[in-house]
Design a binder for these strands. Sequence first.
RNA 1: GGCGCGGUGGCAGAGUGGUUAUGCAGCGGACUGCAACUCCGUGUACGCCGGUUCGAUUCCGACCCGCGCCUCCA
Length: 460
Amino acid sequence: MIQLYNTLTQRKEPLKTLEPGKVRMYVCGMTVYDFCHLGHARVLVAFDVITRYLRHSGYDVTYVRNITDVDDKILRRADENGEAFTALTERMIEAMHEDERSLGVIAPDQEPRATGHMDDMLRMIQTLIEKGFAYAADNGDVYFAVEQFNGYGKLSKKKLDDLIAGARVDVSEVKRSPADFALWKAAKSGEVSWPSPWGDGRPGWHIECSAMSTCCLGNTFDIHGGGPDLLFPHHENEIAQSEAATGQPFVNYWMHAGAVRVNKEKMSKSLGNFFTIREILEKYPAEVVRYFLVSSHYRSQVDYSEENLAEASSTLTRLYQALRGLTPAADVPETDYDARFQAAMDDDFNTAGANTVLHALASEINRLRRDGEEAEASRLAAVLVRLGGVLGLLQQDPEAYFQSGSGEGPSAEEIEQQIEARAEARRNRDFAEADRIRDTLAEQGVILDDSREGTSWRRA
RNA sequence: GGCGCGGUGGCAGAGUGGUUAUGCAGCGGACUGCAACUCCGUGUACGCCGGUUCGAUUCCGACCCGCGCCUCCA
């Protein structure tokens, strides 16, 4: 039985889906005005692993992740660039898909875009007005009347009174309560806009997720996820809008990933201390980045640093070393390792614990190979690849993993040539020459591994 | 100030009321021409103070420290 931590109840709960064997999950995706950063990668990878494991456990998962393709930041950036906002968003969506593929993130089943769901949003806003949960202000904005919704604050554990008293935002005169938030924003002259019963404008940020999630998955669905900073106000507002509009519970399980930090500070757009995924991929193989993310629990915060990535690289190398030169056996039935792996993953997707099983497998495989038990090693190699796959790891051919590099350094042919030259020197017991060749390659970032079968190489 | 999360060995990072996390780094040994890879061995780690208990890193309370949200941000 899978247990998962529910932000709403603040504890782990057994997963009981609305429909047996079926999981409907919605995750807040990107606002596409810039390249994705490591924080996005964290969420992408976390929910990718969750989806993979749910499927591995036999669930039929419908995974929906939206794209916010119209919003203030997008319009401002497009304006700065002197381009149509759609040109900007198309470009960034393409880049985002590239980053996802690099990280081995499986595409969601549906990827709705805000601009494609205007009618749904307008319908929901209309319903909210009709039910008395929203009002059109004099300036053409439409606001959600927070005080009308019983239970506002139940996700973020905030009290409405505190929110109203502590409102730091400019208290707009058009709002009835400082805590009210915009469902629809009237367009200023020259701005991109859509027609509505309340005048031309565009949707507020929160309404799109309420509209798209209920649209794709129904009024009530199983899991809603997102980054840590979306908990409030975004998710809180989604609940208010959705439940007010449909009169039904919105989501059963709320899941939030932990923050990514850099130098003890949260990495964020506003602090300007973020690393984009593509920047990081220039320095480390994508699978190392993924391994780094997966080696700690999805809810804990992680610190990005050169040291941590280097360590992830060493550790992943150990796993691939175990698989190197082995052909995984076919159709290997479940083992104790599978059971241990599942026990860890069943406990709120404890990838760090599951990772231990991967290392236990690697150790056993290495011992078996030392003892010449290739057949059994091949069986466990298959298990290692299978379990690694649930985390989106170890799916490459080991040689390909070791030999792929930044494109710098000598070519594979040159390396093979040098290895042959070194072998010749060694046969002649000219170890000075052999070591010189090895040292030269090392300086070029190529490490040689000798074995009875010969010499293999990898890039550092 | 309000709400929430966390403090584990040199570092990263799980977990548990009494028994090995795991990895990286280090040290010793094996293998090797020497290395690398790999294997074997190796570290009285659980913020502080009380309490509960036969026994607490693990439960309870106080304290100290760090972090997150409360404003656009994954």
